[in-house]
Amino acid sequence: MPDKNTYPVQLVQPDGRRVFDRAHSALVEDVGRDRLRAMYLDMVVARRIDTEATALQRQGQLGLWPPLLGQEAAQIGSAHALLPDDYVFCSYREAGVAYCRGVPPEQITPLWRGIAHSCWDADEYKMTNPAIVVGAQGLHATGYAYAAHLEGAEIATIAYFGDGATSQGDIAEALGFAASWSAPVVFFCQNNHWAISAPVRVQSATPIAQRAVGYGIPSVQVDGNDALAVLAVTRQALARARSGGGPSFIEAITYRMGPHTTSDDPTRYRTAAELELWRQRDPIDRLRRLLEREGLWDSDFEQEAAVKSDEVAARLRSATLAMADPDPMELFDHVYATPHRLIEAERGEYAAYLEGVRP
């Protein structure tokens, strides 16, 4: 059944005050000073990764970058709910989740620099690489979750996607399969209000979370700029999956404060007033205000956050600039797990082309 809350779950208001919500607060009652600070640090670092990668693209060092500015609470809050054996199926914007899964900054940009088909070892970090095909990861997550269930593994999978992806057939098929076979998967929709230039109102005439109800999947809306609330509802959904309760759907209502990708100009389709409204709901500022209100903020911690984020950004930048162009023939490596006649033929044709010989 859908969550009974009329409004999205919220545990921290934009001014840092806590919200009385007995049911959801109980899910994060163990979250004290250390965890709150850790979440804040991860959010600051995620934003710094994003701004550094954006700058690298503007300087011609990356071919493309999909900014996550404004979505830090949705990513970090949900990532902190995951256990080491849980498996993440991401879209192309989850650099913050990747950082929380332990992916080193040095491994975040190879794909975006255009020197490799992927960035990191998916098995090592239990997280897939950026998926450019919109919505495909929903099917991948569902299949993996069902296979894990058949093998008796008590894990959950989580599929991240945006509001625009809910208009793709892949997500609809994934919801149907997951519901029919009780796959232990959490569908995590980051509703950032814009599918490139299409506003969310043209994606769905009803709240996106309600789409899952038609499949018999429990759903909930959460304030996606409230890291604590996101942590609570994601913990609940993941626990349900691990215990055999089947799939869940989370709609984290947030906002993309930057462009869709660095090739996009958001000023062409949204107003400055709308952007300013959401800047006042900045997820990092909100968590900082909570820390300040509860006496968990001091100048030393502020300095620690600045130093940590600068260190990560420096590692990302230096590693990106040091990435050498690969041998052109590597384009055909790792396309298939076993030799393939078509790939071998194309490899030969391309080698001849590089030698200046027409095929």
Rank of each mutant, 00 (worst) to 15 (best):
R47M: 05
I171A: 11
A95Q: 10
L231N: 08
L290Y: 15
S263Y: 03
T262N: 09
W65V: 04
P105D: 00
M39L: 14
I250W: 12
A131S: 09
T6K: 15
Q210C: 08
E124C: 13
L321I: 01
R33E: 12
P2L: 15
V335Y: 04
Y99L: 14
D85I: 09
A314M: 05
E276S: 06
G164T: 02
D226K: 12
S309D: 04
A165F: 06
L36I: 09
T109D: 01
I132G: 04
E355I: 11
D85A: 13
A179C: 07
T271C: 06
V97M: 10
W112F: 15
H80M: 13
I208Y: 03
I158K: 13
A232L: 15
T320Q: 12
T254G: 11
F188G: 11
A232E: 06
V213N: 07
A178D: 01
Q303T: 05
P199L: 12
A147I: 04
S91C: 04
L321E: 10
S309L: 08
D265H: 13
V230D: 01
A74F: 13
Q236H: 15
R289L: 15
D325L: 13
L238Q: 09
A53T: 05
E355V: 08
T320I: 11
G295T: 01
Q13K: 15
A209G: 02
S91D: 11
E154C: 09
L62A: 12
Y353N: 04
R235F: 02
L277A: 10
I171M: 14
A148W: 00
R48N: 01
R18F: 08
S78G: 02
Y255Q: 10
R18I: 04
G214C: 13
E72S: 14
A23Q: 07
G16H: 10
A272S: 09
S180W: 10
R347P: 03
L275R: 14
Y125G: 00
G244Q: 09
N225Q: 05
R270A: 06
I108G: 08
R48I: 00
P266K: 10
E304L: 13
I76E: 01
H340P: 01
A131R: 08
L68E: 03
V31S: 02
E251K: 06
H149P: 00
T338H: 09
S318D: 06
L342K: 10
A227I: 01
S243D: 11
A313I: 06
P130T: 01
L62V: 07
A81P: 10
A145C: 09
S180A: 12
I76Y: 08
R281I: 03
A305L: 11
D333H: 06
R93W: 04
P266I: 03
F332N: 01
R18K: 11
D327W: 14
L62Q: 15
A174H: 12
A174Y: 12
T338F: 11
Q59M: 08
E94S: 05
D264N: 04
S91Q: 02
L150S: 01
G258E: 05
Q10Y: 05
A153T: 00
Q236D: 07
P328D: 05
E154T: 05
H149I: 03
G176V: 09
E106A: 15
A159G: 01
